[in-house]
Design a protein around this nucleic acid. Structure first.
Lengths: 149, 149
DNA sequence: TTTAAATCTCTAATTACTATAGATTCTAGG
DNA sequence: CCTAGAATCTATAGTAATTAGAGATTTAAA
């Protein structure tokens, strides 16, 4: 017995707004679900998992193109290995870069909080820390690499 | 001798598009730089660091409101400790959640890549993994918590 | 000095949602 | 069965955050 959900349940489960769910269907990120006799959308747990995935990728800041690529990957589990590993490896690199940057941010917040035991915040260095760390770690395509200067 | 930059240099250094830099100035995320005699913007390294920070926060998926709050924090290093720690702690929690989710994604990619030694990709489980992990880890305000059902 | 590259301002378009309006359908109580 | 309120439906408009384009001006290298 496959579990079934209304659009509202999907929205509550994932935190995604109802119009957004319909929007994802329209742009093809979500497969069209079957309809009830009265024409309401009826989803199953695969839809739910896929939507949760989309929502979390979005929260993690992945661009829609990347999300689409990831979904395509899982939609065609028998694509040739070379193609898949290449894409997967690229995303893995991106994920590692994000983790590195978030870790830098994390320790900076921890320093801030620790420094706060006195009455006032010491000189805050989040900006410099993140800006510097980023330039060291970041190899994203959106960064054409620091120019010589 | 403070280093100075044109808007184009800033763009190349940070990967941020030129119109976006001007847009950030317009909405107040970036301070208005001084102008040259010919009216072109002249930035210093503080601008550069701040812009790099904004860009990386954006890439990491932080909403603009959060970015603004972080910048405000650093703009007023003598805010009362309670206020700062509260905000910093909230962001730290968010950062930790992101790291947890990214780590889950990371290991799933690693599994995929490892499974790829044969000719075809094994059953791919990124969606389920991220969807499940997310629901376990995620406490974000955008998720009003899974409904009983 | 001149001419190609870079900036300037301003407006329009794009992307990714999000909200609204009016009609229809579902669902629990009488 | 019947009905009122909640939930859905479609379709269109609006918003937020960029991004692109047009035409004028400025800067910088040959």
């Amino acid at each position: 017995m496959t579990e079934e959900f209304t659009i509202g349940q999907l929205a509550r489960e994932t935190g995604c707004k109802i119009p957004t769910i319909r929007y994802y269907e329209k742009i093809g990120l979500l497969l069209e679900p079957r309809r009830s006799l009265g024409n309401t959308r009826v989803y199953d747990s695969a839809h739910l998992a896929r939507l949760a995935f989309i929502c979390h990728c979005r929260e993690l800041g992945f661009p829609q193109a990347a999300i689409r690529e990831l979904l395509d990957l899982t939609d065609h589990p028998d694509t040739s290995c070379e193609a898949v590993t290449e894409i997967a490896r690229a995303h893995l690199d991106e994920v590692n870069r994000r983790i590195a940057r978030l870790t830098a941010l994390k320790s900076e917040f921890e320093h801030m909080i620790a420094a706060c035991s006195g009455g006032r915040v010491a000189q805050c260095r989040i900006i410099e820390t993140l800006a510097d760390h980023s330039r060291t770690h970041c190899l994203t395509k959106t960064h054409e690499g620091p120019v010589s200067r």
